[in-house]
Simulated assay, not measured.
Amino acid sequence: MKRILQRIRRVLPDERIQRADVIAGLSGAVASVPDGMAAGALAGVSPVHGLYASMGGRLFGSFATSTRLMVVTATSASALAAGSALTAVAPEQRSAALILLTLFAGCVMIAASILRLGRYTRFVSHSVMTGFLAGIAANIVFGQLAQLAGVSADSSIALLKAVYVVRHPGEIDIPSLVVGLFALGLLLVLARTRLRLFAALAALVFPTALMIGFGWDSVTRVADAGAIPKGFPWPHLPDLAALTPSLLGGAAAVSVIVLVQGAGVAQAVPNRDGSPTDPNRDFAAQGIGSLAAALFRGMPVGGSLGQTALNATAGAHTRSRRSCPGCGCWGFSSPSLRWSARCPCRRWRRS
Score class of each variant (00 low, 15 high):
R3S: 10
R3A: 10
L5D: 05
Q6E: 08
R9Q: 14
D14E: 14
E15Q: 12
E15W: 02
R16D: 13
Q18G: 14
S27L: 02
S27K: 01
A29G: 15
A31H: 00
G36T: 06
G36L: 04
A38S: 14
A41D: 00
A43G: 10
A43M: 08
V45H: 03
H49V: 13
A53C: 03
L59W: 11
F60I: 12
S62Q: 03
A64R: 05
T67D: 06
M70G: 03
V72G: 01
V72M: 11
T73W: 00
A79I: 01
A79Q: 02
A85V: 07
S95C: 00
I99M: 12
F104C: 04
A105Q: 07
G106K: 00
V108R: 00
M109A: 13
I110P: 00
A111I: 07
A112E: 00
R116I: 08
L117Y: 04
Y120V: 07
R122E: 15
S125F: 07
M129E: 04
G131N: 13
L133P: 00
G135F: 09
I136L: 10
I136R: 01
I136S: 01
N139W: 05
G143H: 09
Q144F: 11
Q144T: 12
L148D: 03
L148K: 00
G150A: 13
D154K: 13
S155R: 08
S156V: 11
A162G: 12
R167H: 09
H168C: 08
D173W: 03
D173V: 13
L177M: 14
L177T: 12
V179D: 01
V179N: 03
G180L: 06
G185N: 12
L188W: 12
R192Y: 01
L197Y: 13
F198E: 01
A202S: 14
V205D: 02
F206K: 04
T208Y: 15
A209F: 14
M211L: 09
G213W: 13
R221K: 13
A223W: 06
A227R: 12
I228R: 01
W234H: 07
P235H: 06
L237Q: 06
D239G: 04
A242F: 12
A242S: 15
A242G: 09
P245Q: 07
P245L: 08
A253W: 05
V254L: 09
L259N: 05
A263F: 11
A263L: 03
G264K: 06
A266Q: 11
A268K: 15
V269D: 02
V269T: 14
D273Y: 07
D273H: 06
S275M: 02
P276F: 01
A285N: 06
G289D: 10
S290L: 04
L291T: 02
A292C: 11
A293W: 02
L295F: 15
G298H: 03
P300I: 07
V301S: 10
V301K: 08
G306N: 14
L310Q: 11
L310W: 01
A312R: 06
G315N: 07
R322E: 10
C324E: 02
G326P: 01
W330H: 08
G331L: 06
F332P: 00
S333A: 15
P335F: 04
W339A: 09
A341V: 13
P344T: 10
R346I: 01
R347A: 15
S351R: 10
